[in-house]
Nucleic acid binder design. Structure first.
Lengths: 236, 236, 236, 236
DNA sequence: TATGAATGAGGGTTCATTCAT
DNA sequence: CATGAATGAACCCTCATTCAT
């Protein structure tokens, strides 16, 4: 059909510029609102270049996702650069800081977060790949930290719920930014503030996890998870 | 100009059907991708009906937002139906349950959440209204609960961070649903599961808040919030 | 069909307001660009009022033309208010002044000139009426003055050509106003300037007519009118 | 933006056909009433061709004006083909004949006159260009001839008024054609008749100018121009 | 390998007109 | 008599895509 039906390593200059431009524009305007004319213009390429190199608009979008994903894991490696014998607390803090820096990243890998957010809203066929190669490892990394902090008796469900609670706290800062910036107009998000937020989420989550860890060891925790409304009072 | 320049109580059948159809379609496809032709078709109305009743596409969108917002506050009143002397713990639980039911609501008021999510991604001029009339009271309600739980010595910043941490946990279930459902394909979200999630978030947050409340009363907490990396170790 | 298929004397309030509003708007925007909504809005009438009272847009236009024409002959009677024994020179001056005041009239009868100008550009079926009842008498009035000034030996063709030459001078000020105002931006057209222009056209035309009158009486004038290029030199 | 943002010499076949068709249709129906569908149909081009080649309808209109203007000055060069030592009388006659041939031209450059006439009625942004590049030189050419004939003592105002008087006589034949053809239905406008009209206007104007030239040299002419009504009698 | 002219479907919007009330 | 909701055709324009070169 067209040139790059399958993943292809060799990319010409035009192709690179096209990916670059498309990344910016897809991140900024979304898949629908972005136009190939706009992309080609910014890439100083011919209108037909998109169809020639990527088949169609969707092919270009997929290629952008692949490229952005690669750039992302390259800049934010899952190892987090921690020493081998790091404590769960240290690993959690490192994880959260990494997450927040990713979220507030305005540079090229920041496209990843924006495009990911768009995929959540209107999933395309690319979301499966992004989940498998991006989100799942990230979730599993955090889950293993959480498991270490909750203790071996914690159920899988408890680990999952806590994992989502931690991720949710961080991700909210991207998702709700338009609202937050309207609610607190004077708040800035420089490196210092990001560190502050990371520290807060770390503390907040550690306190919760440690509290839960205690409860897990006391009898009745499992029932508590499934408690219906009438039973709820006694746990608080 | 057109018929409904200002808010109008009397709505004809066509107008109602138009609002209904537009609500569904805007929620599903977003403002840009939704077409007036599609909306009119579903509403069994003429193409020109949008122009006649609402001026243009944007006017229809604003009217939908108004209607959806009204239906929303009607179905989920901010009072939460709690008795006067409810404890902060009870109020927090009620708040979180209300939030989650709102989030998982698939019916008409559920459009509110979907449309709100779309506004986050691509804010229109309507977002200001939605924030002022919807998000701000919700934030303030939760913030006052958090303040009660943190104690009077807590700083405004601490209250704000904790408020966002709680909201983030809940909202994540809507935002990340496409990812979560891929990570845990067998998970269902019936009333029982929603209750379970609400209970988890409540417990998680209460443990964290109570832990923080203790720290606030011990000297050094303020420094902790602003701690830089080198100082961080001693708080854990 | 509709109410006013034929000319009707009795006009309700709505009808009058509709004619009034339509006159202004047709004069300003032309038949095509004018919209019935705009007209009805200005007339504070219902949208359907045009169809009810005048059948359709064209019916309204015709009614406007009739009304404007009547108002026109009422304000500018062809008698020009001259005494019985007025000399041809006096009659010519009066005619030209009347013509210019008509042309520069910005009030309601001024619509006549504007609408007439539009009819020239895109004649409708109404033009026949306007010519017969408006333009023809005006031409004939001027032609009789011209005949008196040229003398009895002047041919009909000479009279016609001179008549058109005089009318053309005056009408040019309306037709070419956008150009003239760009060529001479500082020129104003108050009563004083209009008098000046009228005086100029009168002088210019009288000198020409008197010169032609002399030639008519000298042999060879008839040949002059049909002269081909090679013969032309000897007349100048 | 689109292809022809700036003036472009190389025009494809489609572009030429589009200009051709647009010229005819704009001249016939005017800017508003003309539809791009109609134009594209006549040009055997796709609807989107207008957008591609000229940006939008207005861009096409501007391009038509440029093209028509160029064709116009090419066919009717301002030099008029007169020998160097031509007398003012000869230059006036040549000017008027050129004007009339332009006015009665039914071919492509004739669009110029029609479109110019439409611009007068509903000026667009193009009128400025047309005036500067078309009308102003034409006015100035005639004004210099008039000045030669009136003599050096004539005021600028007198020159301007006489210039407009001469132009008005000629232009009237286009503007009022629908009326004139109704008043004198048997009149034809072949080359012979056009020559006759040109000769008449030349004679008419020369006689007037010469008469005025005499007056200018007699004392009191300046007062005559500004004379109010009570003073008018003594000049006739 | 790359271009730019050309395409056709579909976008939102405007308009004069009609019809039940 | 008069209304206003409703209609459908047509408007200009945008878009991703294709094709001959």
């Amino acid at each position: 059909m067209f040139k790059n039906a399958a993943a292809d390593i060799s990319t010409t200059g035009t192709e690179k510029r096209l990916l670059e431009a498309a990344g910016e524009i897809f991140a900024e305007y979304g898949y629908r609102a972005a136009t190939v004319r706009q992309i080609c213009e910014r890439a100083a390429a011919n209108i037909a270049a998109v169809n020639y190199h990527f088949g169609d608009k969707e092919g270009l979008y997929m290629a952008v996702l692949r490229a952005v994903h690669n750039a992302h894991v390259e800049k934010y490696p899952p190892t987090l650069g921690l020493p081998a014998g790091a404590t769960p607390e240290q690993r959690l803090r490192a994880y959260i800081r990494s997450l927040l820096y990713r979220i507030f990243d305005e540079g090229r890998p920041g496209w990843h977060t924006k495009i990911m957010a768009r995929e959540m809203m209107e999933p395309t066929r690319a979301l499966d790949m992004l989940v498998e190669e991006g989100a799942r490892p990230l979730h599993q990394d955090l889950a293993s930290i959480v498991r270490d902090l909750l203790g071996s008796k914690a159920t899988d469900e408890a680990v999952r719920l806590c994992t989502l609670s931690i991720l949710g706290q961080g991700v909210y800062y991207r998702r709700a930014r338009p609202v937050i910036s309207r609610l607190y107009p004077h708040q800035k998000y420089g490196p210092k503030e990001i560190e502050g937020i990371a520290e807060h989420i770390t503390q907040f989550s550690l306190l919760a996890l440690k509290g839960l860890a205690k409860k897990v060891e006391s009898p009745g925790f499992r029932r508590c998870q499934n408690a219906n409304q009438s039973q709820r009072g006694k746990y608080l």
